[in-house]
Amino acid sequence: MLEITLTVLILIGAIFTFIGSLGLARMPDFYTRLHGPTKATTIGVGSLLIASMIHFSTQEAGLSFHEVLVTLFLFITAPVSAHLLSKAALHLRTRSLSEPPPLVDATDHAGRNSPDSLS
């Protein structure tokens, strides 16, 4: 039973990690590529970490919980890096299939003194 659970979790994790990178390689423009890795990898690595937690907890050494830290850290940081990447791409006017709102272009260069800009 334990082994089946572990096998399923490991396979799900590996498949999602792979699909995330496949999205990165396959999608046509930067903004669509952004979706694959930031989502599929969090659940991919997430379920691998849960598998590892179960694996080490059921051994003689006792409970193992520090995998939670990595999972938590990835779930907090993934949206932040996605947002920053997307913002940088908008700033550089990266080519894209979808039209960015004109508002972004108009205010991006005027609004540098605002608290939001990273300058």
């Binding site: 903004y31 979706h35 989502k39 993934a78 947002h83 508002l103 608290p115 939001d116 800009s117």
Partner: peptide, 18 residues
């Protein structure tokens, strides 16, 4: 913004200065 980035096919990309 973080919730939007974590959920179905959406990424929050930009916040207007105001």
């Amino acid at each position: 913004a973080n919730t939007i980035s974590l959920t179905p096919g959406t990424v929050s990309s930009w916040l207007s200065p105001d």
